[in-house]
Design a protein around this nucleic acid. Structure first.
Lengths: 211, 211
DNA sequence: TTAACAATCACATATTCATGCGAAGGAGGT
DNA sequence: ACCTCCTTCGCATGAATATGTGATTGTTAA
């Protein structure tokens, strides 16, 4: 079933352009394009909800960001992509926090918009690269400067990798061409250093990024 | 000036493939591809730093995530893109916090990798759509816990959680107030469904988000 | 030059795991 | 009513793991 797309955008020229383009695609249909959140909510009263809604932020009446919340509240399965000129962090984060699943800048080309919608339906999250950069920077600024340093020696790391790959002692011994007793010895030391006492805990720690 | 790319990847086949492809492009050069962070650091001692480094996470010796920190510490202008099979939140966030500027999954095609590098140099941040989705979900406190399609029953999920927490059969039995033989029975069924045959593999799958 | 530590190996033993077999009550669907 | 699946439990056995107590060979830093 081809995904159904809705548009909320107050610039009629842009709105019509996008709608015509998307509706023309085999993989999509775009039966509804309105110029405010209020109109979209009205439309949703007596029509099936689209799979994806493209939404501007600057709109007559209610802002797009507020609209996200209202729409997701009643139609939680609708995915919303912001399509806007704003690239300041506050707007981006507020939109994402409100429940937007993607954030594209308005200079995004029509084929890219189409790709983004398909990506979203497929479980991805479309973001313009500049937006992604800001999101990532946000992580790095709020980075807790914790010490991930666990003092494991290179060889011990090898052993841990073996464990993470689900190998037995014997298989690890074979992989690194050492005896199984050596593997045991390393494991003992690893357990001491990490304060654990089972393979399971080592694997968990490793995959959680604590090693 | 064409951006210079470096690669840290322990799988020789993949490494060579990517290097050859990138180096063949007019817009890029890729003079260095090594299989560990340690080797890359050595290389950087007496060569000009690349503009971008593609880096795996699971590596012999030091992990790629730790490598990010070390490399960015001495060569802060280098941008690092993670290129890995891991898509569990812990690894993603740890990598981004450590200073990675992009995060791609390994099934990314060569032309997409190239595009990602060019995007990055241009101020963007390449991310696989799946990754972007996880990052966005992180912003949405009310994260709807979509059931990742796995045939595991609720009880089996409980058991898996116990394993992930590093518990022994006996401890799991105590936690859920059932007999150790029942735990065994569940584990047997879990192993069958996931096609594995050790706690280690279950934990790994779970933490990698494959359950 | 010691001292510390990484990496290698050995032997022993108690515990835990993996896996086979079998079984029985209950929930839910046809 | 019948069948399927979830959940629960038991017994048994070989394999793997956890842990202790050693020891030898290098490398490195005080």
């Amino acid at each position: 079933m081809a995904p159904v797309v809705g548009i909320v955008e107050d610039n009629k020229k842009i709105r019509d352009l996008i709608q015509r383009y998307l509706d023309m695609q085999d993989e999509l249909s775009c039966p509804v394009a309105v110029d405010s959140v209020e109109e979209m909510l009205e439309y949703l009263e007596d029509h099936p909800a689209p799979d994806v809604i493209l939404m501007d932020i600057q709109l007559p009446g209610m802002s797009g960001i507020k609209g996200i919340g209202l729409i997701k509240e009643k139609y939680e399965d609708v995915d919303i992509i912001m399509l806007t000129v704003y690239h300041d962090s506050h707007k981006i984060f507020n939109a994402l926090r409100a429940g937007a699943s993607g954030y594209l800048l308005k200079h995004t080309s029509l084929p890219e918009i189409k790709e983004s919608i398909l990506k979203l339906v497929d479980g991805g999250a479309p973001m313009s690269p500049q937006i992604a950069r800001k999101v990532i920077n946000h992580f790095q600024e709020n980075a807790p400067k914790k010490n991930t340093d666990s003092d494991l020696t290179p060889r011990e790391h090898d052993i841990v990798n073996g464990l993470v790959d689900g190998l037995s002692y014997k298989m690890i011994a074979d992989r690194y061409d050492i005896s199984i007793d050596t593997v045991r010895a390393h494991i003992r030391n690893i357990y001491k250093k990490l304060h654990v006492n089972s393979k399971a805990e080592v694997i968990a720690k490793s995959l959680k990024g604590e090693i």
